[in-house]
Amino acid sequence: MKLEIFENKRVAKDTFSLKIDNPALFDASPGQFFMVKINDFDYPLLRRPFSIADFNDRHIEIIYKVVGEGTKILASKQKGEFLDLLGPLGNGFGDIEKNRRIFLVGGGIGAAPLIYLSNVLENMYGVNYKAYFGFNTKDEVYVDFGKTATMDGSLGYAGNVVDMVEPELDENSLVLACGPTLMLKRLAYVCYQKKCDMKVSLESRMACGIGVCLGCVVETIDKDFKRVCVEGPVFDYREIEWQTL
């Protein structure tokens, strides 16, 4: 489906917020994603998967980082141009148990889907949560709520976001996380030690996004492969064979 760009602006270092007109034809839940065709022609060939940073009556928002050719071209797109979106796809964070101590933990561009999640938690569920976001440096920060950690100490807690949140976690905690693999691996280890629950949104290279190419699989503890696009991208962290990531 071709949708018009309302806004595509830089919000932090190499980071852009893309707002697209919402046709109000479908609903989307936090953690789901869209496959976006960058150009009308065959370069780049494959669609790119992007999580949903916000979804309201007027707009679908995607926050992305320029990491390669595809996102570089995307950053040059202007208001009024059209983008071809497929979605929303995949399983999001699902139902959230209200009586838990909820922690949103995001790293880098992985904080994006947690923004939409926080809106839904507040407005639909009316539940309290604490949010912790980690970035490398201050100029990468694009989130305006929660607590911030930076690796270089230029803003907030100096160090890793996992170290910042760790003392807060206990058996009644539910962590909802998205971020770089290394961060999630550490977080999974912490959650395992603290015996708390975690739903984690994983990132993977995808060709189709609809479960047929089998390119995006992750290894699960039962020594099977699951598709990030269909069975995920949000998983119970206990399902994942973290050593293989």
Partner: peptide, 9 residues
């Protein structure tokens, strides 16, 4: 099937 990564553009 094979271990990931399985695809690259």
């Amino acid at each position: 099937g094979n271990k990931p990564p399985r695809i690259v553009e």
